[in-house]
Write a protein that binds this DNA or RNA. Structure first.
Length: 420
RNA sequence: GUGAGUGUAGCUCAACUGGUUAGAGCAUCGGACUGUGGAUCCGAAGGUUGGGGGUUCAAGUCCCCUCACUCACCCCA
């Protein structure tokens, strides 16, 4: 290994990906634990689908006209010539799994949750990564708008448990196959009428996704679009009834919310309810959590006519607004002195661990002072000291680093002392 | 994909309009200190100034290219 240093360039993590280091991993575990606890309280069960799926799944599910499918997927051909995609979102995988395993024939409630990495080839910026993590829940077979309200309430509960403050709930209805096409046509007509007042971007949006015109920040477009009708005024009877019931459910739960007719979401499959929880402190990527209803997806995949609704929470964004403090677990540092104490020290550490006490030994044959220094620096709650003297007497010493108090103890008593 | 900003030690930052051998604090490691921690003192290690090219007697500093990061557009978690 005499290779010249300058020959080896340092290998860095792939653009848009991040290492989660031990220092911060505790917060991730806290989010995951809170998610499990809350979701299972509402009858959800974990369903773990693969990270890779047939590309076709997302083309059909997420939708051919969504930005995700058009330009953001990590797609490759495997050695068998199949087109494989690293999942950019989770919902199509759950639908696929339900159909594949005929889960809709089982009596269990079809409520699932999952947490894991997603992949999108976006340009990274604040709150946006190429590998990011979502906590995701889905419900199937509940038509009633009460469930729409319930999942928002569940999301809110999770956010409260994680100490998130300063968020806002935005809701909308994007209609269904009965009422949306007519509305979009109307919108296109209105856009065409003021075409010369729109920016190039909006001229394009008028064709692809006219709802997006409302989002434009150009003044001229804002003015031109000011008189455009809102989708919430063009819903069919069923959709507007559903929306009203959804909102009254939120009121029942005491959840303040704002109707945001421009809340569209760029995924093709949504019907009726869409919602987001946003935090302005996140900057441009303000959605901590977003979701909605997709009543046609299962049917479109050739399955039963089973409606669905769900949401995904971005863990990176959540952590940025959550009030989680890194929690340090107390542990013991075993300091042995002299070769004769090493093996008895190893044995003592084993007994501590067997009793559930975290115990660290550093095999460096250092003096007691140095070991205490290390223990202090590492944040040990106790130091268990064993030297030749203790070995002779069949004892060890336990020192509390917080109080400095120290006492001799038999190996059996050490655990009791540490447990207090 | 488009635009803007930033790249100097593990971290936070210095180095006047280009001018000796790129410095400091914190962190790391060692010593003072071989059975009692956080302190102090001393010392060591750590950099082709992101990379490449150019201008110049001379480049961390100016120019070009490239890469990375950051922020915004777009889109979304």
């Amino acid at each position: 290994m005499t290779k010249d240093k300058r020959d080896s360039k340092e290998i860095a993590a792939v653009k848009g990906t991040k290492d989660i280091l031990p220092e911060e991993v505790g917060q991730w575990q806290a989010v995951e634990a809170a998610g499990r606890r809350v979701f299972e309280l509402y009858g959800y069960r974990e369903l773990r689908a693969p990270i890779i799926e047939p590309t076709e799944l997302f083309e059909k599910g997420t939708g051919q006209t969504s930005d995700i499918v058009i330009k953001e997927m990590y797609t490759f051909t495997d050695k068998g010539g199949r087109s494989i995609t690293l999942r950019p979102e989770y919902t199509p995988s759950v639908v696929r799994a339900i159909l594949e395993h005929r889960l809709y024939l089982q009596p269990d409630p079809l409520r699932f949750y999952y947490m894991g990495p997603m992949f999108r080839y976006d340009k990274p910026q604040k709150g946006r990564y190429r590998q990011f993590h979502q906590v995701d829940i889905e419900v199937f077979g509940e038509k009633d708008a009460a469930i729409d309200a319930e999942i928002v309430e569940m999301a809110d509960r999770l956010l409260r448990e994680l100490g998130v403050a300063g968020t806002e709930i935005l809701v909308n209805s994007v209609g269904c196959r009965a009422c949306r096409p007519a509305y979009l046509k109307e919108l296109r007509n209105r856009a065409a009428a003021v075409k010369d007042r729109l920016c190039d971007d909006c001229k394009r949006k008028a064709e692809t996704n006219p709802l997006r015109i409302f989002d434009c920040k150009v003044e001229g477009c804002k003015e031109a679009a000011a008189g455009f009708p809102a989708i919430t005024d063009h819903l069919c009877a069923e959709c507007s009834g559903h929306f009203a019931e959804f909102k009254s459910g939120l009121d029942l739960y005491g959840l303040a919310h704002e109707v945001e007719p421009r809340l569209v979401r760029g995924i093709d499959y949504y019907t009726k309810t869409t919602f987001e929880v946003v935090a302005s402190s996140l900057g441009a990527q303000s959605a901590v959590l977003g979701g909605g209803r997709y009543d046609d997806m299962m049917k479109d995949f050739g399955g039963p006519d089973l409606c669905g609704i769900g949401f995904a929470m971005g863990v990176e964004r959540l952590l940025a607004v959550a009030g989680l403090k890194p929690e340090k677990k107390p542990f013991a540092y075993l300091a042995y002195m002299g070769g004769a104490a090493k093996k008895p020290g190893m044995e003592l550490a084993r007994r501590l661990r067997a009793a559930g006490v975290e115990c660290l030994i550093e095999y460096k044959d250092k003096g007691l002072k140095a070991q205490l220094g290390r223990a202090s620096k590492l944040g040990a709650a106790w130091v268990v000291i064993i030297g030749e003297e203790e070995v002779r007497k069949g004892l060890c010493a336990v020192k509390s680093m917080a109080t400095g108090e120290q006492r001799d103890a038999s190996p059996d008593d050490v655990v009791k002392i540490i447990r207090g």
